[in-house]
Each structure stands twice: as C-alpha cells, then as structure tokens.
C-alpha cells in the first residue's frame, strides 16, 4: 500500500498512463479501476490503485473474519458455553461483541489512513489528508455492514464457515454488480442494490462523504444488528 503511493511521482510525471487508460476498453477500465477519468491526478491515482478495489476488499475480509468470529466462532470452538454461564444477558454479549468489532474496524481504518497520509506527505502529494480520511471512513462503513451481516448470520446458528462464505460471496457479487452496472444494460437498474455503490459512487476522496450514502450503510448495519439481537436471544445454543 505504501509502495503503491511511493510509485505515484513516476506515474504523475508520465501522461502516457492517462493515454493507456483512455485506450483501454471502457468495461475493463470500469471493472478494475472504477469511474476514473485520469490516473495521474492524486485522486485518480489513489482511487484507481486503492480505493476502488484493494481497500474495500481488505476491509471486507477483515470485517467478515471478525464478525463471523464474534458469536459463531466462539460457539463453534465451544467457549460460548462457558461465557454464557456468566451473569450476562445474551443481548449484552452481542452488543459488546459488536462494539468490539466496530472498534477494531475503526482501528484498522486508522492504520490504513495513517499509512497513506504519511506516504502522501513524504512524496509531497497534492491531496487533502482529510479527504483520504473520508474515503477510508467510507470503507469502514462498508466493512461494518458486511461485518455485521456475518455476525448476524453467525447468530442464527453455529456455522462460522457458512457465515464467512455467504457474506464473502455477497461482497464480491456486490463489487461486480456495481462495477459492471454502468456498462452492462441489464444490470444498470440494479446498481443501487449493490452496497459498493454507496461506498464509492459519490467519490468521497474527491468530494467528501455523501450523507445519504452513509445513512444507507449505517442504517443497514442497524437493521442487521436488530435481526441478530432477535435471533440470538431466541434460539438454543449449540453445545
């Protein structure tokens, strides 16, 4: 990641990279580097190299591994039995697990932002550090939705593998749906069903966070958490 940024000066000095972009088939460009008009500007470069594909996938898998481990992981390894014999409400255990996940995704986001910011300063990149934070935060929110989805799936039965598998598959599908929708006619009306749309469409790196999109991501997280609370409180724990 840091290396990616340290390579920026050589890219920005070479307009031919933009020609390369414009000569690429449109669909291919959109699929792998997103809606970017150039890759030599700081925003275009960072979006194409990090924020369109690499960073959301990192957040996705990081969040899913934590979300699925929170309840399903403990249940599968058998430690949940001991934990639940302590005087704690199930809803409290779940909320604290969720809070821990939020903190750890935020911490992951901070490390991500910090390393980009430091590298950008080192190479003297002309970019607002606050905008990098906003773009990273968008990734945090995306990770939060998928992390909570895996937590919720994990709450419905003790199958960590299923929770990871289903959530990861949905994540990858959401990525492709959002990437392909602008160029594939049949998919176009479905683009807004993809969570990646709410993550990147407003281009938070250039324009800052879009409130409506943030509300969608956080609202969905809230709904999933409520479903998790209901299912976890009602069911039998597996020995």
């Amino acid at each position: 990641m840091i290396l990616t940024i340290l390579f920026y000066p050589s890219v920005s000095d070479s307009p031919e990279f933009d020609d390369l972009l414009h000569n690429m088939p449109e669909a291919l460009a959109k699929l792998f580097i997103g809606e970017v008009s150039d890759i030599t500007s700081p925003e275009g470069y960072l979006n194409s190299q990090l924020f369109v594909l690499l960073m959301p996938l990192l957040f996705l898998f990081f969040s899913i591994s934590h979300g699925s481990g929170a309840i399903a992981g403990e249940e599968e390894s058998g430690t949940l039995d001991l934990l639940m014999s302590y005087p704690l409400k199930r809803s409290r255990v779940l909320m604290e697990k969720f809070a821990a996940m939020v903190v750890i995704i935020l911490a992951f986001g901070f490390v991500f932002w910090f390393s980009i910011a430091v590298s950008a300063v080192i190479i003297g990149m002309d970019i607002i550090l606050w905008r990098i934070a906003e773009a990273t935060l968008s990734g945090v929110f995306l990770g939060l939705v998928f992390g909570t989805l895996s937590l919720t799936l994990g709450c419905s039965g003790n199958n960590r593998g299923l929770s990871i598998g289903v959530t990861s598959a949905l994540g990858v599908a959401a990525y492709f749906l959002n990437a392909l929708a602008p160029v594939v006619n049949v998919l176009e009306p479905l683009q807004k069903l993809s969570l990646f749309y709410y993550y990147i469409e407003a281009d938070p790196l250039s324009n800052g966070l879009d409130l409506a999109h943030v509300v969608v991501l956080l609202g969905l997280t809230g709904i999933l958490l409520a479903v998790a609370l209901l299912t976890f409180d009602r069911r039998d724990l597996v020995a």
């Binding site: 390894s77 039995d81 005087p87």
Partner: peptide
Amino acid sequence: VDIRQRVGYLPGELET
C-alpha cells in the same frame, strides 16, 4: 441472569 450470578458452572466439554 440473577440465577447465573449465583451459580458456578463447569461444562462437560470445557473449551478455553
């Protein structure tokens, strides 16, 4: 919760 406050439990298949 009140009950579990007053109980000590050892599971049959303890996992740590």
